[in-house]
Design a protein around this nucleic acid. Structure first.
Lengths: 230, 230
DNA sequence: GCAAAAGTGTTTGCGCTACACCCATGC
DNA sequence: GCATGGGTGTAGCGCAAACACTTTTGC
């Protein structure tokens, strides 16, 4: 057996983003309980079981380690440099997930076994393995994907004031947005609907209409050849 | 050892595209010599060795099985459904490659051990494993990527008449292109340079100027914040 | 001269940008 | 009333689509 091929382990990692107006864009991390990198912060994830799909493995690990259920998940990239894990060869298929702000807050309740926490992507701790690089790639994917697919809504609550969407885009793209033009563009797409409700004013200013993303309408538009683009 | 994780094998597959005016967009396939799917056509690829990177594995397998050296390569996606290989669990990291037309023609010379051939993507044979699905995804990637990254040049010769580029885009996007507007747009990007030569007219019509893609200029433009988009 | 393919100029209209103003709320 | 943030109208500019015409070759 000259060319050993069977001792490569297969793992999955999850890069899960959340968002709040206060904290901005945040990332879900766990604190490792074992060597290597014991006590370091790292991406949630683990080895794939013999008969589960990759996606199932991610969902399972996220549930086990953080109690979180994502409402958007897609494969990001596979990382397989021979030396990325000091113990043995491990290739990791990284998945990219988004959770709504309501879930985002509820983290602590469901996690006492593992130590899991949200970190603002502007203030990340030192990270295990090549996870820093993986996260960089995930942030790039998020920033580019938000421009041509309406995944921003997966980070907001079901109902949200329009200004929340605007602030989210400003935070994600890290630049100011022209309020007038942004709302004209988004509303012209015709996949947002008013719920009829008004937001309770948070201290100051006029209350805003609440909106809801109409998934069904969006799917219809896609069939008609519509292309989302910011 | 209740949860077996160590018996998943790791493979790579290559989806390599070529292009010629006659055949259009073509795909490189090999004919399998062993079971399963013996004699079926399949993507070139194979298991990753213990100490090589994923990309190295792809390049090696392509060389061994087809004699081809790609001049563009990027990771496409990882496929890992538990039942995608009848023998045992195999996850495959698929890579997406492009070769220039000159290489594209030279295939037969370097391959007598394996049976390798180009197939027009409009007339693909039956395929082993889940390779049909992988190819579909690769074609989608090619079609979308060609619009926002100048990878089309990787499918043409170093020097090419402008109309070749136009025909390539028409073939890839499967729609007609307005000659005037296409050339205005591409030339305005300022990363094509005239070589000064003229094409030998192929029978009829006026000979055309030959162009060359200026990689260095393109990199400069990127630094200045330029964004390619068709 | 004629057909075929390359090369170029110009009008038109849509969409994005920029700017300006009005409305509803809490204090 | 005033400050704060939400909501909307519109002029102007730029760019891309659409169309038309000229040039150079082989026969």
């Amino acid at each position: 057996m000259q060319n050993k091929t069977s001792d490569i382990k297969v793992a999955v990692d999850a890069i899960v983003f959340g968002y709040s107006k206060k904290e901005g864009v945040s990332l879900l991390l766990i604190q490792r309980k074992y060597e290597p990198y014991k006590n370091s912060w790292a991406l949630p994830g683990g080895f794939v079981l013999a008969d589960e799909s990759l996606e199932t493995a991610v969902i399972r690990e996220l549930q086990e380690e953080t109690g979180i259920t994502v409402n958007y998940l897609e494969q990001l990239y596979s990382f397989g440099e021979p030396d990325r894990d000091p113990r043995q060869r491990v290739i990791s298929i990284a998945y990219f997930g988004l959770v709504k702000t309501s879930q985002f807050r509820e983290l602590k309740a469901s996690t006492d076994a593992e130590n899991a926490a949200w970190f603002s992507i502007k203030k990340l701790p030192a990270l295990a393995f090549d996870h820093k690089q993986i996260i960089r790639q995930a942030v790039e994917r998020l920033q580019s994907k938000i421009r041509y697919q309406p995944i921003g809504f997966e980070l907001l609550d079901k109902k949200f004031p329009f200004s929340d969407l605007e602030k989210l885009y400003a935070a994600l793209l890290d630049k100011e947005i022209n309020r007038r033009n942004f709302s004209k563009k988004i509303l012209s797409f015709d996949f947002l609907e008013e719920t009829g409700e008004l937001s309770k004013p948070e201290g100051k200013g006029r209350p805003s209409k609440m909106y809801r993303f109409n998934q069904k309408r969006y799917k219809e538009l896609l069939k008609e050849g519509f292309h989302f683009e910011i």
